[in-house]
Deep mutational scan, measured.
Amino acid sequence: DFYKILGVPRSASIKDIKKAYRKLALQLHPDRNPDDPQAQEKFQDLGAAYEVLSDSEKRKQYD
């Protein structure tokens, strides 16, 4: 669930989604977690979630 990945409720605004994405991107970035083999995958999932939820048309289709 993309909302769960970003840690935001379904009613979150685009601004809230962007804020959550930036915070998590810093935490999950593979360069900051060189010892975590799943860091790259988590970071890619985060990017996919943000791409869908930050675009109003894609978000409507997802919901």
Rank of each mutant, 00 (worst) to 15 (best):
P9S: 13
D45K: 13
F43C: 04
A49R: 00
L6T: 01
Y62L: 02
I14C: 15
A12Q: 02
D45A: 10
L28Q: 06
K4Y: 06
Y21W: 06
A20E: 06
L53E: 00
S13A: 11
G7S: 06
D45E: 15
A39K: 06
Y62T: 02
E57H: 12
D16R: 15
Y50A: 02
S11Y: 09
K60P: 02
I5P: 01
E51S: 09
Y50R: 02
A12E: 03
P30E: 08
G47A: 10
R22T: 14
L28S: 08
D45Y: 09
A49T: 01
F2T: 03
I17Q: 03
L46N: 01
L28I: 04
H29T: 07
D55H: 03
K42N: 12
A49L: 00
K60R: 14
K4M: 08
Y62E: 02
L53Y: 00
F2G: 03
P34R: 14
R59E: 01
A48E: 15
N33F: 15
D55Y: 01
Q38E: 08
G7K: 08
D55G: 02
P37V: 11
L26H: 07
A20D: 01
Q44Y: 07
L53G: 01
K15C: 15
Y62Q: 01
F43H: 12
Y62D: 03
R10C: 08
G47F: 15
A48H: 13
K4L: 04
Q44D: 10
E51H: 09
A25Y: 15
Y62G: 01
L53K: 00
Y50G: 00
Q38C: 12
A20Q: 12
G7H: 13
L28W: 12
V52I: 14
Y21T: 02
A12N: 00
K42S: 07
A48N: 11
E41L: 09
S11K: 11
Y3C: 11
S56L: 15
D16G: 06
S13R: 07
F2S: 04
K18Q: 13
A20K: 09
R32T: 10
D31S: 10
K15E: 15
D55V: 07
K18D: 12
P34C: 06
E57R: 09
P37F: 06
R10Y: 06
Q61H: 12
G47C: 15
G7N: 14
D16L: 10
Y3I: 00
